[in-house]
Design a binder for these strands. Structure first.
Length: 322
DNA sequence: AAACCTTGCAACCGCGAGTGC
DNA sequence: GGCACTCGCGGTTGCAAGGTT
């Protein structure tokens, strides 16, 4: 899997994939003399390549300490964590992963991790829950997945009300009111209550502990500041965050639930919530896929279909989704 | 089974930083 | 300070392989 030979450039230097013979020459030369000046290396090594190409080949492929093969879960987590702090500083990230090259990490990010985060409803640039139409879909899945998470007697109509309420702000003149406080809302949804300790902290229930920070969803999506200690909540209040505990003292009745900010973090809590209705183009939405994943992973089959069938009432936002 | 589409990734390109004269 | 040169980084390309229609 490589570029096809492009032929010689105007300087007569070869481009394209390296042959085994070229690799052998490069390895032999560097093992004997070190790379020294990359510019001078190809001439000394008998290679009809530019120094840049030699350097790239050595660093990304021929170096003896290169670790090939799939990235482990641990490596994956390290990359995600470092990327949230460093951004696209691939070489800096690579220094924390012995044997991995910046190019390899960059490719892995672009082909796997980026998509994975998108599917989780997380913006791969800011590492925060996405707050756009696409994220809405992830949120829809979360509502369903969250329901599945706790549902022994989950009421389908209630689920649909929640679903509708989340969607309605797009165009509904009469949104359904939700319980005013987050805690009450969780009760309303049948989710386990937050555990309050004697310091007025609330601990997220075990069911909602995630691989990805569950606290991400409780802060302002528009604030790009990484979460390091205190952060702002959705209403602009400072929220103290410490060891997965949230200081709830500043939460007030203006909190609504479900919130577009909270829900994305729930995606990965569900073992079935990973299937996303998001394709590679990021902006195309396939309602059939949504329907299928709902049917497969939730206990309210047909919810979407029923919803779509009732198009007369919801045509505007169905258009938005489609 | 052929055509088309998607995915994975090696390699290229352009640019900026660093260095020496 | 200005210039030339080298190196390293990040973004992008383009093709083979695999998957889907």
């Amino acid at each position: 899997m490589a570029r096809s030979p492009v032929g010689n450039d105007e300087g007569g230097l070869k481009k394209g994939p390296w042959t085994p013979e070229e690799d052998r020459k490069l390895i032999n030369y560097i093992q004997k003399h070190g790379h020294g000046s990359w510019r001078a290396l190809p001439r000394h090594a008998g290679l009809n390549r530019c120094g840049k190409s030699c350097r790239l080949r050595w660093i990304n492929y021929l170096r003896p300490d290169i670790k090939r093969g799939k990235f482990s879960d641990e490596e994956e987590q390290i990359i995600i964590n470092l990327h949230s702090v460093l951004g696209n500083k691939w070489s800096a990230i690579a220094t924390h992963l012995p044997g991995r090259t910046d190019n390899e990490i960059k490719n892995f990010w672009n082909t796997h991790l980026r998509k994975k985060l998108l599917q989780m409803g997380i913006d791969p640039v800011t590492h925060r829950p996405r707050n756009d139409h696409l994220n809405l879909l992830a949120t829809l899945q979360q509502l369903l997945a969250a329901a599945n998470l706790v549902s022994t007697n989950w009421d389908q109509e209630l689920a649909k009300i929640q679903l509708l309420n989340y969607l309605m702000p797009f165009n509904s003149p009469t949104p359904i009111n939700l319980p005013p406080t987050m805690e009450a809302s969780m009760n309303f949804l049948g989710l386990p209550s937050l555990i309050r300790d004697n310091h007025h902290h609330h601990q997220l229930p075990d069911q909602l502990h995630l691989n990805y920070s569950p606290l991400e969803g409780l802060v302002n999506c528009s604030d790009p500041t990484p979460i390091l200690g205190n952060s702002m909540d959705m209403n602009g209040h400072e929220v103290a965050i410490e060891n997965n505990k949230i200081d709830m003292r500043k939460f007030d009745d203006s909190y609504n639930f479900p919130s577009p900010n909270l829900l994305p973090a729930l995606v990965c809590a569900s073992p079935t919530g990973q299937a996303a209705a998001v394709n590679q183009m990021e902006n195309k939405i396939d309602p059939n896929e949504i329907s299928n994943s709902y049917s497969a992973s939730t206990n309210f089959n047909g919810c979407w279909d029923e919803f779509v069938d009732d198009e007369a009432d919801h045509s505007d936002w169905i258009d938005v989704l489609e």
